[in-house]
Design a protein around this nucleic acid. Structure first.
Lengths: 153, 153
DNA sequence: TCAAAGTCTACTAAATCGATGGACTAACTA
DNA sequence: TAGTTAGTCCATCGATTTAGTAGACTTTGA
């Protein structure tokens, strides 16, 4: 399970992607719209900023905004920032490899082999999904829902 | 990342699978062989037992053993027992679904759609990998390593 | 009956999670 | 330049989880 912090981060990013052309978004607005505790959200946004995903502007007219286009920010990036490596064991992480302290040969570790498969499958999905992709999916789902509604009338 | 507890559990299960025909295995032996703190291992084995994966025998000649053949115990089962649901968000869990408290429509939730993909990919691997499969992989890897060694002579 | 071996309850230290409060600083604007 | 707006930094908090440890208790086989 991902933490609430990570989930809030994803929600915030999707929200900022949706309002990409509107300039800086206030923490307060984001917190209200996505029902995230304001002070908690603040820490999340700082982390995303420190890792190059967001930028901010102080003072009146300030707020947070994506530092890149929604089509070049992925769920994988966000999750690694908030949650750490995607891998289930350190010895199969591509972005922050570490030897499993208690293990012998990696070549013949059965657990490692399985965990590597899981990591690769997960990373493929998360690194292949951009904020723009998610917006598109949401739009399609809403479209489909409206279609279903038409039939029910 | 999975917890050490879960990793210990997987190691213990693989070990018990390797010694499947040897009758009950002592906690002490398992702890020593796999370098797991004995008292900690005890709690892990109890959890696996309470969930039907292991059986035990008390007194002299006692110990722990798999309650089913290694080809019908999967990594997925073990990980769910130790770690909880495989899904990254409760609303996509098949084995212990729960509505995400802070979410609106599941049909149009972009985060959910991605997390569902990840869950399905992960579950496919973990539920498709039995202890017997892992033993076979290990044997193959050791075989390959010996082959490589021959070349290096 | 004795020793072997699992079982049960309790406890600990440290880290993480999910927040919250308040002082501080940068920037815009009247 | 004063005042307001809005992000920044720091500290704290209670609850839960993680990774273990200690010890008394019960079952079982010889």
């Amino acid at each position: 399970m991902i933490s609430k912090k990570t989930k809030y981060a994803l929600k915030a990013l999707v929200f900022l992607a949706r309002h990409y052309d509107r300039g800086p978004i206030l923490i307060a607005d984001l917190a209200r719209e996505e029902a995230i505790p304001k002070k908690f959200l603040e820490a999340i946004l700082v982390a995303l900023k420190n890792n190059g995903v967001l930028q901010s502007k102080k003072g009146k007219g300030g707020g947070y905004y994506l530092s890149r286009h929604p089509n070049s920010i992925t769920f994988g990036q966000a999750i690694r920032i908030m949650e750490g490596p995607i891998a289930l064991v350190p010895c199969v992480s591509e972005t922050s490899y570490a030897k499993c302290t208690e293990c012998g040969s990696e070549l013949t570790c059965g657990i490692r082999a399985v965990m590597k498969e899981v990591r690769d499958a997960t990373a493929k999905i998360l690194d292949g999904t951009t904020l723009a992709d998610v917006l598109e999916r949401i739009a399609n789902a809403e479209q489909a829902q409206r279609g279903a509604l038409d039939f029910s009338i």
